[in-house]
């Protein structure tokens, strides 16, 4: 169960995995996420679904190697099995025919916006995609994104590839151009989603963001993922992960994401020492 069927390095820091999970694939929809454990003693981490194939019975996930769990996942090979893989969790993206929509993906957020764009386009929307990353080598899926959008704007923070801009710049230009934008989605680092929301707010364009708060069970049981939206406490795992970006308390989210930074560092350093040792002895 939960075997890795394909593995691909998308950027120097992120990898794609195609996981055998026919039941999850049968139900998965754009905007939902899974929670996986790499091994018995592993933690449960949420990852937004990057693609699903109902016929092949697979789910695609993309993980950026930032901590022990994602690094460990990066060492797993085709044929290996995850310890657990639970989903689809969270509410799917509300897909309707809105008209013209702009979908912004920053960094790793490019992966989850792919199925969102595809579903929005299938529903008859005119889809403008904006994808960006810090630099060119961190960008991925440009071609795939072109195939599910009517227009695609690509930018990098440092200008090492395509246009030198933050994703908010082309977004603002679009809003200023007088074109009617009916809805905006933004998926990526919290800080990027915050600034996208701040950009659209003066224009009164509803902006949906996908909140990546810390989770454990992903079913509403623990409340680790609680966020404040419109002054109300919500659980990102069951009430979200998508919320109205204009109502999110971003500072709270950013602070809550840092609860375990010190312990995460301990776990990562310990794991890296382990990796070094096993390299010295020739093991994996």
């Amino acid at each position: 169960m939960y075997r890795i069927l394909e593995k691909e390095a998308l950027t120097p820091v992120s990898k794609l995995f195609v996981i055998e999970a026919p039941e999850v694939a049968r139900k998965a929809q754009a905007g939902q996420f899974v929670i996986l454990r790499t091994h018995e003693k592993g933690e449960r981490i949420p990852l937004t679904i990057a693609d699903y194939d109902r016929e092949a019975g697979t789910i695609t996930i993309v993980a950026q190697e930032v901590g022990k769990t994602t690094k460990y996942l990066g060492t797993m090979q085709v044929g290996d099995s995850l310890a657990s893989f639970t989903g689809p969790l969270g509410r799917p993206t509300e897909i309707e025919k809105y008209g013209t929509v702009v979908v912004v993906g920053g960094g790793l957020g490019i992966a989850p916006i792919y199925p969102i764009c595809r579903s929005l386009r299938q529903a008859g929307n005119y889809v403008v995609g904006i994808i960006g990353a810090r630099s060119g080598n961190l960008l991925f899926w440009e071609d795939k994104m072109r195939s599910v959008t009517d227009e695609l704007i690509v930018c990098t923070d440092d200008g090492s590839y395509a246009r030198k801009a933050l994703v908010t710049e082309p977004l603002k230009e679009l809003l200023d151009s007088g074109r009617k934008v009916d809805r905006v989605w933004a998926v990526g680092p919290a800080i990027m989603m915050k600034f996208v929301s701040l950009t659209t707010q003066p224009y009164g364009v509803k902006t949906i963001v996908s909140l990546n708060s810390i989770m454990v069970d992903g079913t509403g049981m623990c409340g680790s993922c609680r966020v404040s939206v419109g002054g109300r406490t919500r659980f990102a795992c069951v009430d979200g992960p998508e919320f109205d970006g204009h109502e999110v308390d971003w500072d709270l989210l950013l602070k809550r994401q840092r609860i375990y930074v010190d312990l995460e560092k301990i776990a990562l350093e310990r794991y890296e020492r382990e990796l070094m040792r096993s390299k010295d002895t020739g093991g994996r």
Binding site: K41, V216, M221, C222, L252
Partner: peptide, 29 residues
């Protein structure tokens, strides 16, 4: 919602199910 406020469910799930008391031998803090 301050950091350091837990539901008992979260504290106990991290500790018991995820074996947080054995961190960093087990991964969940």
């Amino acid at each position: 919602n301050y950091n350091g406020v837990y539901s008992a469910n979260e504290l106990l799930t991290r500790t018991n199910l995820m074996k947080g008391y054995l961190f960093p031998e087990w991964d969940t803090p």
